[in-house]
Design a protein around this nucleic acid. Structure first.
Lengths: 260, 260
DNA sequence: CTTGACATTGACGTTGCGTCAACTTCTACC
DNA sequence: GGTAGAAGTTGACGCAACGTCAATGTCAAG
């Protein structure tokens, strides 16, 4: 007597706005088995299956993963309402962190865009360089005057290809030595670290546009850079991440205090 | 004379905070080929490669995909700064829409949580149902009094399993007919659509707790529901998505105006 | 010469299906 | 009853960006 009508896979797909492939997938992973399988292998779904499908689609729209959905929906018998709420709470937390991450990324992208635009064509091949100190154009200009950047850029452009390769290699070598020292657990006040700091200052002095270029760079300049190494991931990555950059900063601070 | 020093894959990995697997992957997809491959097949990277890697990692941190990065970074020769900016702008737009999506999802999840909590245990097996009108507990209670929900819930719980299956099937059948009619492009004022509207009202009258249950449901109740079908995706899905729900709403409006 | 650290190339797993491909079955018309 | 066309079936690959074995070859050091 009960009108146990059921529907073919395509009908269900149209009804719920999904596709037959999705339904077969849900069957494949055991999330939603059809209520009946005809002798020819065709899948048919009854009202109960439709109910379950509605729940699945709702949770999916909320952003939950299929394994989680299978978990909270249970084996069609384990209906625990508390589990649903706690799962949704966990999911809400995850959404929060994800959105925060996107927000931070948007800020970074926006900042990078303005930097690229302000620097314009000049920055084109030095930005992102990771080796050329002109990376920090903004900060340098703010503190040391606008022409400092232009001078260093001219210096870079005046070099031959061979000179540039050599300079890059020297720069990378210095960074590599810093990274190695940091990951070795070396102390910032140790003789080796201080020798690295000396090389670092020497390296900086080789860049025109650097305050005090040719002679000893200005103390405040060094300290400012040291802080930037830690604060800006673009630099930090050069020295083995934030921990490495912190090591560099500490070593440079000690060196500056004693020598400069 | 040029100190063309280079580094092994592991050294580069430690230097830049990635893994050797990543570097091999970048080689595999042609994004960052090593500058030198020894006779034994070992990969070595020079300063230029490190520069390129820095750029890659920076863009990756900004959330760009590897194909996009390969595109804007070019074939190590095609250095177009304008392409970088426009790519970043496109990416920024994408980040915007993504964040908006997450925000909306968070609102939905939050709403669902409070609904589940308020309904508590009672809602457990009717919520998400997609067929039981007690879905719209909140709205129903607001407009028609708190006991309306309790009455319909009691009615549901009083049914035998067999009765429930039959009820669900009948409900699903109605929804299926609506969906089919909508996707057939039927006119809301057509006789067939109006017959569906009649069945719909009849179906609603079978639920105790419905205003005017047993007799003809109240006109405003029907119109309110019709609007909800369109506004709330949980209902819309039952009638073949938003377009289907709109069809249902229009047909019900016409029916209510003429008959009720 | 052996050991241990580090290198190599496959190849599978992840998320949620889309998208062929090859084949069978149902429905309808003549 | 035959046949076309719609609709069903089961594989299996593809995507993004690597992580993670697995099996094996090399290099530096004792």
């Amino acid at each position: 007597m009960a009108t146990t009508k059921d529907w073919s896979i395509q009908e269900v797909a149209r009804l719920t706005g999904t596709t037959s492939r999705t339904l077969r997938h849900y069957d494949g992973i055991g999330l939603l088995p059809p209520s009946r399988i005809a002798s020819n292998g065709y899948r048919y779904y009854d009202a109960d299956a439709l109910v379950r499908l509605q729940r699945i689609l709702l949770l999916r729209d909320l952003g939950l993963g299929l394994p989680v959905i299978a978990d909270v929906l249970g084996d069609a018998v384990t209906q625990d309402p508390g589990a649903q709420v706690s799962a949704l709470r966990t999911h809400l937390d995850w959404l929060h962190t994800e959105r925060d991450r996107l927000t931070r990324q948007m800020a970074s992208v926006g900042h990078t865009i303005t930097t690229l635009e302000e620097g314009g064509r000049l920055m084109a091949d030095t930005m992102f360089d990771g080796f050329d100190h002109t990376q920090y154009q903004e900060e340098v200009e703010e503190r040391w005057g606008r022409d400092a950047y232009a001078r260093s850029d001219a210096w870079w452009r005046g070099m031959s290809e061979e000179e540039r390769v050599a300079w890059k290699a020297r720069t990378a070598e210095l960074a590599a030595d810093w990274s190695a020292a940091a990951s070795d657990g070396m102390a910032p006040e140790s003789a080796e670290a201080q020798e690295l700091a000396r090389r670092h200052v020497e390296w900086l002095s080789g860049v025109p546009g650097t305050p005090g270029a040719g002679a000893a760079p200005v103390k405040e300049y060094i300290l400012g850079l040291a802080d930037m190494y830690v604060a800006d991931p673009r630099f930090a990555r050069n020295y083995g991440g934030e921990s490495g950059a912190t090591f560099v900063r500490d070593a440079l601070r000690i060196y500056a205090a004693h020598v400069l």
